[in-house]
Structure formats: C-alpha cells, structure tokens
Design a binder for these strands. Structure first.
Lengths: 251, 251
DNA sequence: CGGATAGTTGAGTTATCTCAAATGCAGTGG
DNA sequence: CCACTGCATTTGAGATAACTCAACTATCCG
C-alpha cells in the first residue's frame, strides 16, 4: 500500500528524501543494512558484507558529542544537521549545514578526530558506516570513489568560501550568502518550491555559522525582513526578492 | 660527487627539500619527468607513462592567475607559496601557506575551478601533473590514494580551524596561531632549528591570512616583538618564548 | 497558567578599520 | 657612491561595525 512514485534500484527503495542525492545510495547498501554483494563493479566477484545502521535524532539533539571520537562515517537521509567546533567559553563555529544526501566526518577517515560537535537541526535520520568499511568501498569501487572525491572537493571549496566570508565580508553579506548557499543546495535537491524551503536554524545557529553574535544577527535579519527580501514562517524561509538578496550578498 | 645522505628510491634522487615529505615523490615520478612504470603495485603490470614538468617562480611572482583555470595539480618541491581568493576591491583571503611537499589544487580534480590565485612567497620550485594522470594514479595505486586522502583530510581540517579562528578569535590569537601552525609544519619537515624558520611572508600576507588589515597587523606584531615573544630577521622568524606565544594564541 | 527558551530593542563599549602622514629600505640609473 | 623611486612598515587620530549588557516581549510546551 506504499505510494512510491519513482523507480528505485533493485532491492533499494528510495525511502528518504536524500536517497536520490546520496553518494552511497546507489551502491545498494541502504537496502537492508547488510548486503552480500554491492554495486556492479566488484572486481573480485566474491561476496562482501557491508554493515550499516540507521539512526534518528530529534531537532536539537546531539548526534556526536565533542568529547567522543567516532569510528563511523555518516550520511544524512532526511532532516538537517550541523557540524561545528566549540570553544571553551561556549562560542562555536558551524562549518556546514548538512542536508539530505550529505556525507559527514570524512576527514576522520584516517586520523582519529575529536572536538567536533554534530547536532540535529531538524528531526533527522542518518546512516552510520564503519570507517574501515567505507575505506574499503572507496578503494574498490571507482564510481563510488569519484563521487566521493567530487563531494570532498565541494566541501573544501565551501569551506574556503566560508573562510573568505568570515575574513573579509560584513555581517549582512555573510548572512545573505548563507541563505543563498542553502537555497542553492535545496534547489539542487528539488526541495524548494515558490522560493520557500525548510529552515529549522534558530538565530543562534545563524550566528554560529556566520561568526556573529545572536543579538547582531537579530538586527541584520530585521532589516532583511523589513525590506521584504526574505520572510520567515513556520520554520521555513521564503526568498521574496532574489535580486536584492544577491545585492546584499555583495560581490 | 653529490652529497646524498639518505637513501633514495631507485632512479629518484632527493633533489629538493620537499621530496621526503611529498606525497608523490615515492611513486618515482619525479626521477625524470617521465617514467615507464611507477611504484611497485601496478596491478596491470603494463607500461605506463606519467608526464610531469618542473617549474620555477621567483618570490612575489604569480603561479596561477585568478582568471585562468588550471588543468594541472601541483606539488611544491622547494620554497613557499600561498593559495588565496581575491575580492573585487582588492582584498583577499589566504587559505593556506604551501610548504615543500604540499599538494595544490586538488579541489579542481573534477570540477573546473577558477578565481583562485597562487603566488610564490619565496623562490619556489614546483611540479605540475595533469589532472587526468593524477586521477589515474589515484585510482590505481592504493598507497598513493591513502596518502592523498590523509593529505586532503588534513587540509580540510586546517581550513575548518581557519574558519573557527576568523569567526571567533581576535587579532592577536589569529596571528599567534598562524605562527604556531607554520612552526609545527616546519618542524615536521625538519626545517626548523633553534626555534628559527624561513618566513618570507610580508605583513600584508599575514593580514590576508588572518582577515585583518595590514595596519592592524603591524600593531599586533609590534606587541609580539616588544614582549620578546618572536623576532623577525632576514626573512626568517624566531620563536623566543613558546609558552607565551601559546598563551596569546588562546584556547 | 507558569517556566523555559528564543528573539527584540536600546545604550554604551571596544576591537578593528580607514585615512593620512612619516619613516625606512631595496633596487635603479647616473 | 648618490639621488631617486617605489614599496613596506610604522604611528597617530578619528570613525564604525560589531559586541556586551540588560531589560523586555513573544513563543512554545507541559
């Protein structure tokens, strides 16, 4: 009795919004949590067991505590999450807002990493995969490897852009760019309609992502709202005037 | 008549300071610019020609102009360079100071990239390798792939740390951390002695790397000098008081 | 209804920037 | 060797974007 509109890979129903964009979905791993033989390019031709597990986190819940080091790599299936590092005094910097299909924690693939905080911004479903098994996938399946490379390069470029903004742009520009970037990534996923997309970030998250104070963030957002550039309603954001938003974002 | 202290791979003399730390040196590619068969793990066993070329840039010269898009990946053999993005008004943000052995432009491996500026900070020798050939190396040689992954994850983590500093730390902390990070990377390469290492950056480079103004950078550096924490002489930097430098760098 | 969390607003402070002028320093041509 | 030019650095004065603090309001949830 399920309403399934799009054709799915054999044994791999597209259960979550992120599936179609997920770099791991097409391997077939998600079908059951265990697969005997994945993909079509297994050079050895032998059976292989890949284990993964699905988890849920409610909005606001912590997915990874800064004091624990993870042995897993994660994929966002649905919802939204954020990756950040905190300072001793409680301030922190958000590096990326994670959308369905995104991979998290790949930088811990070789060196163990600690001090990173993962928090669900919205009710979120994610899949965990052991680092060792992920590495195995990477070295054995060229397609998967290429997709992974594209993704990690994208994330590094995003991070460079973030550094550029934090170093050289003012508050309004940073906030406008954050919104534009999210809108673009939502659009790529087909999760935006009528300029409106799901926006579970609270103002302190916007502040943490842009290196600002919540107070100052509030003041900048007021201008954006008063000028009818964006509109917030029911945890979603609507871009009313794209041209002016781009103008605020600056060169 | 050459003084060669460490044993080099067959046909691959360690010509430059970066060789021992370079993720590509051990493949043997650098020996002649062309090799018929690289490494020891070639699964096909067949002959393969990898082409690469060596280039020089004098201090201050541009290696890659922001308007040209490169089809190459580069390795620093000796000297120092910087990778940055510039804004229309001339301000820019430096993302990384590149030391001997470092790989540059790997984020352009799949998507063409433009707008990035590469500049030699010191007289620099670097090696260029076509993207396509680099990708081939990556997919065929597991060791090389692992080293590459470690390096790209390291760079992403560095970039996260940069964003954290730009977003959440003050001028003195950012500058102190830049110095500490460089000292650490020089130490790893054995290129530091008596707390002193080569430091060709001008104050505007420090400013561009820390998101500050050259004027303000000058004022912060004065304090560091007056407090006998660091000393600049002949384009090199000496850390006089590591404990206090760490203290300035903050938590 | 009450208590907690999130957002708003104003007043005063501060880190950093901008502008401008002065100094130092390296390379060039005479 | 010297004067000259161009860049890097220094220093001071004043401007400003963003911060801190504090009080108030709105919203959510049991």
């Amino acid at each position: 009795m399920q309403d399934r509109s799009s054709a799915a890979a054999p044994g791999s129903p597209e259960k979550y919004p992120g599936c179609a964009f997920c770099i791991i979905f097409h391997t077939g791993i998600c079908a059951s949590g265990k697969v005997d033989k994945i993909g079509s390019a297994n050079p050895a031709g032998g059976a292989r067991v890949i284990q993964s597990s699905v988890h849920k986190a409610l909005a606001g819940q912590m997915i990874l505590h800064p004091r624990e080091s993870s042995d897993d790599v994660m994929f966002i299936c649905s919802g939204q999450a954020m990756s950040s590092i905190g300072l001793a005094d409680g301030r922190r910097q958000i590096f990326e807002v994670l959308l369905p299909g995104d991979l998290v924690l790949w930088t811990a693939l070789f060196e163990p990493m600690t001090g990173r905080l993962l928090e669900a911004l919205d009710d979120t479903v994610y899949r965990k995969l052991k680092r060792s098994e992920f590495k195995m996938l990477l070295s054995e399946y060229p397609d998967f490897f290429a997709t992974f490379m594209r993704f990690s390069a994208f994330q590094k470029n995003q991070c460079d852009q973030l550094a550029l903004s934090l170093g050289r742009r003012n508050a309004a520009q940073r906030i406008a760019r954050l919104i534009l970037e999210l809108a673009k990534r939502f659009a790529e996923r087909g999760l935006i309609s009528d300029g409106t997309f799901r926006f579970p970030l609270r103002q302190r998250h916007i502040a943490d992502a842009t290196g600002l104070t919540p107070v100052h963030t509030s003041k900048v957002l007021r201008h954006l709202r008063q000028d009818h550039i964006v509109e917030f309603k029911d945890r979603s954001l609507r871009i009313l005037d794209m041209a002016r938003l781009r103008q605020v974002a600056g060169p």
